[in-house]
C-alpha cells in the first residue's frame, strides 16, 4: 500500500470564497482521497467543499522559470489600475 499516489487537497472554507490549497495526502483513488481529505483537513469545521487533484496531474512552474515568468511584470506599472488618473466627472467608477 506504499504505492498509493499523492493528491493535493483544496478546501473552500465557506460559501462565496474560493477553494484554497490545504495540503496533500495519499489515497488509492479519488473517492478515498476525498474521504481522507475530509478526515485530515476538515476535522474542525474548516470547510464546506473539498476538491482533490492527483499531484501528478498538476503542471507547476519551476523556480528556474521565475525570472522569465514573473520579473517582466515588475516594471509595468500601467497594469495596475492606480496608474491611471480618473478624469473629472466620471461617476460610478
Amino acid at each position: 500500500m506504499n504505492d498509493w499516489p499523492l493528491w493535493e487537497v483544496f478546501v473552500r472554507s465557506r460559501r462565496g470564497l474560493s477553494h484554497v490549497h490545504a495540503g496533500s495526502l495519499h489515497a488509492p483513488d479519488a473517492e478515498l482521497a476525498l474521504r481522507n481529505a475530509r478526515d485530515l483537513y476538515t476535522r474542525r469545521q474548516e470547510g464546506v467543499s473539498i476538491w482533490v487533484v492527483r499531484s501528478a496531474e498538476i503542471e507547476a512552474s519551476t523556480p528556474d522559470e521565475r525570472d522569465s515568468f514573473f520579473d517582466p511584470a515588475a516594471d509595468k506599472i500601467y497594469r495596475h489600475p492606480t496608474f491611471y488618473d480618473v478624469p473629472e466627472g466620471v461617476q460610478h467608477l
Binding site: 495526502l25 495519499h26 489515497a27 478526515d39
Partner: peptide, 12 residues
Amino acid sequence: APQLEEDVALAN
C-alpha cells in the same frame, strides 16, 4: 493502520 490517512479516519 495501513496508512497515516487511514489511521486518522479510524481514530475519527
